[in-house]
């Protein structure tokens, strides 16, 4: 026959395909995970030469005795606690309403989706402009209803509500699309059967829609929580690079960023980042457990 080519070693061949991705992942993802973990324990080191003189738990001790870190944790947790369920609830309502529309379905979908794909920086700036105490649109609209001016951006009590509203607004479209996709996956026979059994619309929603959407909603809940724990960009922009009035918008990532970029305290930042990692890991594990249960 023509040519008797021997197959090249399979491992070598696979490696050729994997190499570009693995090099990048190795340098920028595998290595930093270990490095970041190790760096949390560096108490004395030279960043320029990468020489470590001393290791210990000092950084973690510092982080856990830093009131700012607790404040960041508290703010972030409150934010996650409210922003995530609220975002999902509103998205669920809107998605169900959109699903029942005959016309303009895709128009609504598109409008709600807009914030999701636009630059956080851009929209944060618009928000802070709209929330301006003296010239902002929001206060002007409130005035129409006779509500006095609110110092949105300088009142520390307003920071978290604003961030929550912003996050709900920005993530709405994404959640709606996922819920709509799940809604479309529900067999209409279930509804027909429920109607014959005499279930009213509300009962149908409660006993058919919600249970069948559960996997999707759980998925959204976990991924949104993970995303919410990492809130940073909007705080940084809306509050002119400050963590909000009286640190009312100090979040974990802001804390890390601040230690790292402003104070060049790499090791402390790494220790704090590690704590964030543990929180997110916990959430991921919970996600897996739930997903596992679902499959059984």
């Amino acid at each position: 026959m023509k040519k008797y080519s021997r197959p090249i070693n399979t491992e070598l061949r696979a490696m050729a395909y994997l190499l570009p991705a693995l090099v990048i992942i190795g340098i920028f993802q595998f290595y930093p995970i270990f490095k970041s973990f190790a760096m949390g324990f560096y108490t004395k080191f030279d960043y320029l030469t990468d020489r470590v003189y001393e290791t210990g738990l000092g950084n973690f001790k510092y982080v856990f005795s830093d009131p700012d870190f607790y404040l960041a944790m508290k703010n972030t947790c409150i934010f996650v606690f409210f922003a995530v369920p609220l975002g999902i609830l509103i998205a669920l309502i809107l998605a169900v309403l959109i699903d029942r529309q005959r016309h303009l379905k895709s128009f609504f979908q598109s409008v709600y989706f807009l914030p999701f794909i636009t630059s956080t920086v851009s929209v944060s700036i618009v928000w802070s402009w709209m929330l301006n105490k003296d010239f902002g649109l929001v206060n002007a609209l409130l005035k129409l209803f006779g509500i006095p001016k609110v110092a949105w951006l300088t009142d520390p009590n307003m920071t978290l509500p604003i961030l929550i509203a912003f996050s709900v607004w920005k993530g709405l479209g994404y959640k709606i699309i996922l819920i709509l996709a799940a809604l479309q996956g529900i067999d209409t026979q279930y509804y027909a059967a429920a109607r014959i059994d005499g279930a009213k619309a509300w009962k149908q929603f409660l006993h058919i829609t919600i249970p069948l959407l559960k996997p999707c909603l759980t998925f959204l809940y976990i991924t949104s929580s993970i995303g919410a724990f990492k809130i940073f960009d909007e705080v940084y922009i809306m509050y002119a690079q400050q963590p909000g009035p009286l640190k009312s918008g100090l979040t974990i990532v802001y804390y890390i960023f601040n230690k790292f970029y402003r104070h060049w305290e790499f090791a402390i930042a790494a220790a704090a980042a590690f704590v964030l990692f543990l929180i997110i890991l916990l959430l991921t594990v919970i996600q897996f457990i739930i997903a596992d249960k679902k499959e059984r």
């Binding site: 290595y31 930093p32 890390i256 930042a269 980042a273």
Partner: peptide, 17 residues
């Protein structure tokens, strides 16, 4: 497994690299 690690955590070592 690596996918689960948030990218914010990688920023510091990556900056150093």
């Amino acid at each position: 497994g690596t996918m689960m690690v948030p990218s914010e955590i990688l920023i510091i070592p990556n900056y150093m690299t």
